[in-house]
């Protein structure tokens, strides 16, 4: 079965072709970061308009790369939610229109299920069960993944996502969008011991996170350390970045360890854009050696939003595919409500 996957829940347009016998044949991503940089943030209206512009050309490119024709597609999977309603509707309508034209079944996929299953596309793929840390601009969640459709939310952020804290702190430090990678880069040259930032909820006794207070702590630090012109000198800025990154990495690492301990699981998967953070990886690798667990980092192309994970999750849920071409989107959708596949 050849499954076409369409992801359009937020900033990225992702298209992929997954074959249930031979694996991932092609996947393409049109990231809108370059376009957003000039606006100082992700621009949803431009994002949804851009999904419309990109989705068919990307599909054609994927088909060409895989040496397939559109008529070879056996089923179409699209992100049904959660996400921005306008952006989701682009993927949903294209998927159903294509399905109707080809008379092939269509299946709506939960975006987070896509993320949770994406490690299975990588080599080596982790075996079930595993703990997944999904950490990005929009999410910070720890989940126990016992099989397809068997997800237990262990903890999540009660306010800001970790990636959002990176981006907002970057803004407070006068850096441009997207600030996270720049904060990490500056942190490499900074002294993490000069300033001490809080580790929110480290001792909360549960697996929840909170990063809003950390952002406020950065704000207060910036106010205290700023020069007469309201800016920070380069060394101070790097030191603030280093202290901030260390605080986030410390919280993420220790909550992952607590989740492994609580469930008795021995495999940890890191998904989401913040998973690219080098200090986070170093901290987890070190802990994995000491505590004897395995840690998996899917390639970055599968960590950020992408079409491959949607094609794959759709392929795992073909029994739910329908050919009635009735569709809606679910901007809010509880992952726990999914049936087992």
């Amino acid at each position: 079965m050849l499954v076409l996957g369409i992801e359009s829940s937020c900033d990225e347009t992702g298209i992929a072709l997954y074959d249930t016998d031979t694996g991932l044949l092609a996947h393409r991503l049109h990231s809108q970061i370059a376009m957003h940089t000039e606006y100082g943030g992700v621009v949803p209206e431009l994002a949804s308009r851009d999904h419309i512009r990109r989705v068919l050309p990307l599909t054609e490119t994927c088909l060409a790369e895989a040496g397939k024709a559109i008529a070879d597609v056996d089923a179409i999977a699209y992100t049904e939610g959660p996400g921005l309603a306008g952006a989701l509707l682009v993927g949903a309508s294209v998927a159903n229109a294509l399905g109707f034209a080809l008379q092939k079944p269509v299946v709506g996929v939960h975006h987070l299920e896509g993320h949770l299953l994406s490690p299975l596309l990588a080599e080596p793929a982790p075996q079930f069960p595993f703990i997944a840390l999904l950490v990005s601009g929009g999410h910070t969640q720890l989940m126990a993944v016992r099989g397809i459709g068997q997800y237990e939310l262990l903890g999540e952020t009660v306010d800001d996502a970790a990636g959002e804290a990176f981006d907002k702190s970057a803004k407070l430090l006068g850096l441009s969008y997207p600030g996270g990678p720049q904060v990490s880069k500056l942190a490499d040259t900074g002294d993490a011991t000069r300033f001490k930032l809080p580790r929110p909820m480290l001792h909360s006794g549960d697996l929840d996170f909170s990063f809003s207070g950390l952002k406020t702590a950065v704000l207060n630090l910036v106010k205290k350390e700023q020069q007469e012109d309201g800016t920070l000198d380069d060394a101070t800025r790097a030191d603030v970045c280093a202290a901030f990154q260390e605080a986030i990495v410390d919280v993420l690492t220790r909550k992952c360890l607590a989740a492994l301990k609580q469930t008795g699981m021995k495999r940890l998967v890191i998904a989401g854009g913040v998973g690219a953070n080098r200090q986070l990886r170093a901290g987890l690798d070190d802990a994995a050696k000491r505590r004897r667990f395995e840690v998996f980092y899917p390639p970055l192309a599968l960590c950020t939003d992408n079409g491959a994970m949607i094609a794959f999750a759709g392929a795992m849920r073909l029994k739910y595919a329908a050919a009635d071409y009735q569709f809606g989107v679910k901007p809010r959708w509880d992952l726990a409500s999914l049936p087992a596949a």
Binding site: P44, V158, D159, D160, A161, E164, S212
Partner: peptide, 10 residues
């Protein structure tokens, strides 16, 4: 329940 920042979700 949780009251999360709507920055990402709008």
């Amino acid at each position: 329940g949780r009251v999360k920042s709507p920055t990402y979700t709008l």
